[in-house]
């Protein structure tokens, strides 16, 4: 059933400072509201029990993309459309652009934000696997100050995160790499647009003389959190790029992921597809 709108509050603080004041004053009473593409769906379905929201859409401090020699830093309110338009991201972080282009349709891409995707904390979200493989870091700000945390480890359990109720996610930082990386991103869903993933795979690797010097692998929809597959990475790092290594990596990944049955797919299917995507990723790496 639809929600009763007058029972909700949505206040618009004029500045970041005032937003943080509100969040700090009544710890947990006010929650951030960004592009609303997750929150409004819950509201419409009558499944939004929390009532008080802080409209952060206008906060300039959470917008814009900054490029320095070391990092590309994105405001938490950066939309999927803005991600796709940024040249440095296209060149150096193509999986993030691809994830953005496969998230919803254009109208969703104009409103949905990267920060909202992270803090909404769906294990099926499409940007997190890319962000995990790119070693993203998050800036969390409260009245007490700012801290940078690694995105890997940010999600501690299903919809559990290390962000505190008085904190806002303000920026997402991607370290630029001097190394030539190969990138592989695949979202598997029921249709191309608007579909929530059954499995989402992101991988980067550096290969030299037929040997995997370094690599990163992350998957979505196969665990309670978006998962960086460290064990599979360890099994492959330094190894030759050949059939025994691929078979061995499949076995390790099979034990590292814990997919579930739900309305979108089955555990079995997700298992099989994850292993196949890993193999496809490794086979497509050019030596």
């Amino acid at each position: 059933m639809r929600a009763y709108i007058p029972s909700y509050q949505l206040v618009t603080p004029p500045s970041l400072g005032e937003a943080l004041d509100v969040l700090a004053a009544d710890g947990g009473v006010w929650r951030p509201f960004a592009g609303g593409t997750d929150l409004m769906v819950l509201l419409e379905a009558g499944k939004l029990p929390h009532k008080n929201y802080l409209n952060i859409w206008n906060l300039k401090e959470l917008r814009g993309i900054e490029v320095t020699a070391q990092h590309v830093t994105l405001g938490a309110l950066t939309t999927y459309t803005e991600v796709q338009q940024e040249k440095v991201l296209q060149e150096e972080f193509p999986m993030l652009c691809q994830a953005a282009s496969e998230t919803g349709g254009l109208a969703i891409q104009n409103r949905g934000t990267l920060g909202g995707n992270i803090v909404n904390a769906s294990p099926a979200a499409d940007s997190p696997p890319a962000l995990l493989t790119y070693d993203a870091e998050l800036e969390l700000i409260s009245l007490g100050g700012a801290r940078w945390v690694a995105y890997h480890g940010f999600h501690t359990g299903y919809k559990q995160m290390i962000i505190r109720p008085d904190e806002l996610l303000t920026r997402i930082r991607l370290p630029r790499s001097a190394d030539k990386l190969q990138h592989y991103y695949r979202k598997v869903g029921t249709r191309k647009a608007q579909a929530i993933s059954k499995v989402c795979f992101a991988g980067t690797a550096q290969v030299r003389d037929g040997k995997i010097e370094d690599l990163r692998i992350a998957l979505g929809s196969i665990a309670p959190v978006p998962l960086r597959c460290v064990k599979t990475e360890d099994a492959l790092r330094g190894s030759e790029l050949n059939q025994p290594a691929i078979a061995q990596a499949r076995a390790v990944l099979a034990n590292e992921i814990v997919p579930i049955d739900d309305i979108r797919s089955t555990s079995n299917y997700r298992h099989q597809v994850s292993l196949n995507l890993l193999e496809d990723f490794l086979r497509q790496l050019s030596a």
Binding site: L10, T12, L106, R111
Partner: peptide, 15 residues
């Protein structure tokens, strides 16, 4: 100038 779904926009955000 950007296309959006008006069912997902709380009116406060079009000030």
């Amino acid at each position: 100038g950007k296309i959006v779904n008006s069912c997902l926009v709380p009116v406060a955000q079009v000030e």
